[in-house]
Simulated scan of single mutants.
Amino acid sequence: MADDVPMSPELEQINGEIQDIFRALTNGFQKLDKVKDPGRQSKQLEELTGKMRECKRLIKEFDRELKDEESKNPPEVNRQLNDKKQTMIRELNSFVALRKTYQSNLGNKRVELFDVGAGSGEPAADDNVQMSSAMSNQQLIDAGRKTMDETDQAIHRSKMVVEQTIEVGSQTATTLKGQTQQMERIVNELDTIQFSIKKATQLVKEVGRQVATDKCIMLFLLLIVMGVIAIIVVKIVNPNNKNIRDIPGLAPPVPGARRLLAVPPF
């Protein structure tokens, strides 16, 4: 059951207010069927519309609170709470559709009343002209001033709305400009980082080539040293080997060769 879903105290409070509004809407539409006067129907329909707006606001608040608590709840609880929210939305949409039906029926009734004409108690257009002509000059002036004051107030409200819109537009433009400059700085920093990465890659390649060259030279020297050591070892082991006589100091002495005598110091 959706009502058995565990909720935080905030969600329970919002859910309780929404359910109270749903009960009030149900009772209101049931009473609306018994009202025959179009004026009373229109007034009661406006009250029900206000309750629907309040219900919509509470559902949005329920959704915001649900998103704030989403990370704290298990996935199954989040799924049940989302199903609960969708149920509220569907129920509210059903009341909205019902309101549209009543508005349509109420509009048809008003058309019928206008068609009756003289049978109704409302004055016709000619009667209104006669009533205006029967007014005194001071009354006409007062009525005109009242209309002008209402018009001035409406113009003033429109100017305030325009000024607020311009201010919001200016703030938005300033914010967008700052974000654009920040994006440009980020792009420049990314270009610098990319250039540094390319430079570092080239340096690594050069160092690698130098290391490889040094290793080759060291290997070649090592081979030479090992060859000399091998010849020395062979000569020590086999001093009569004729294949290495050409190395100075390693060839065996030649018979009959002269030896230099050391001259004693005076």
Rank of each mutant, 00 (worst) to 15 (best):
K31E: 08
L106T: 02
R23M: 10
L48C: 00
L106M: 05
Q44M: 12
R64W: 15
D115R: 05
K67G: 13
D63K: 04
T101M: 15
E65R: 07
G107L: 13
A118G: 11
K67S: 07
D20H: 06
K67M: 13
S133V: 12
L25I: 02
R110T: 13
V96S: 05
G28L: 01
R90D: 14
V111M: 15
E122A: 10
D115H: 09
R64A: 14
N93A: 06
S132C: 10
G39R: 11
Q30S: 08
N93W: 06
L66S: 06
K100M: 06
I89Y: 01
G50H: 09
M52A: 14
E47T: 12
M52W: 05
S133I: 13
P123F: 08
R110L: 14
M131D: 04
M52H: 00
Q30L: 13
T49E: 00
S132D: 14
N105K: 15
V77E: 04
E91R: 11
T26F: 06
K43S: 11
E91K: 08
V77C: 01
S132G: 13
R64Q: 06
Q130I: 02
R90P: 05
K56G: 02
K56Q: 10
N27E: 09
S42Q: 03
P123N: 04
R79S: 11
N73P: 15
G39M: 13
E47R: 11
Y102H: 01
K31M: 11
S120A: 13
D126N: 12
K36R: 15
P74Q: 14
M135K: 12
S104Q: 13
K56V: 06
K84W: 00
S133P: 06
I21D: 02
P38F: 00
A118W: 15
D33M: 14
R110G: 09
K67Y: 08
G107R: 07
R40D: 08
V96H: 10
K85Y: 04
K72F: 10
K31D: 10
E65K: 14
N27M: 09
V35E: 02
S132F: 12
I59F: 02
Q130P: 15
K34L: 10
K109W: 05
T49Q: 09
P38L: 05
K36Y: 05
C55I: 04
G107V: 11
E76I: 11
V77S: 01
N108A: 05
N73D: 05
E91G: 06
L81N: 03
P123E: 06
F62M: 02
L81Y: 00
K43M: 12
L106Y: 03
M52S: 08
S104G: 14
D83R: 02
R64L: 13
K31W: 03
R23A: 09
N27C: 07
K85L: 00
E54C: 03
F95W: 00
S104V: 08
S42Y: 00
I59W: 01
R90V: 09
E54T: 12
A118T: 05
R99A: 04
G107N: 10
F22Q: 07
A97E: 10
E76L: 08
N105A: 12
